[in-house]
Amino acid sequence: MPDTTPPPLDSAQVAHLASLARIALTADEIEKLTGELGVIIESIAKVSEVATPDVPATSHPIPLSNVFRPDVPGATLTVEQALSGAPERDGDRFKVSAILGEEQ
């Protein structure tokens, strides 16, 4: 099995991960996390020692398949229930700040 151990984590990578995860980390937090995660990753990277190609992956602890629901409408939330937790609303819709995206 080829060595697939990724290179050690650096702070630029942590900053990138934080942006993927939408967390506005401060520079101090990034620095601290880089150290902490480095230690943790070093410790957990040993999973690859025994994860040989002949071993299948298990994603569910109890194997089941074909769990379906009949196509029958059920109870819905009222509009008020749906919006009850909204930090901000406009009429019956959720309100968010301007979106940076698609058509720039």
């Binding site: 629901r69 009949p70 196509d71 939330l77 749906a82």
Partner: peptide, 25 residues
């Protein structure tokens, strides 16, 4: 009418879980 055809699952409310529609399959 907005937000009238929703359950906790459609809103991604904490704790809600998806179940697959057999007819869609």
């Amino acid at each position: 009418e907005p937000n009238t055809m929703v359950t906790p699952v459609c809103l991604g409310l904490p704790g809600s879980l998806p179940v697959v529609n057999e007819q869609a399959i």
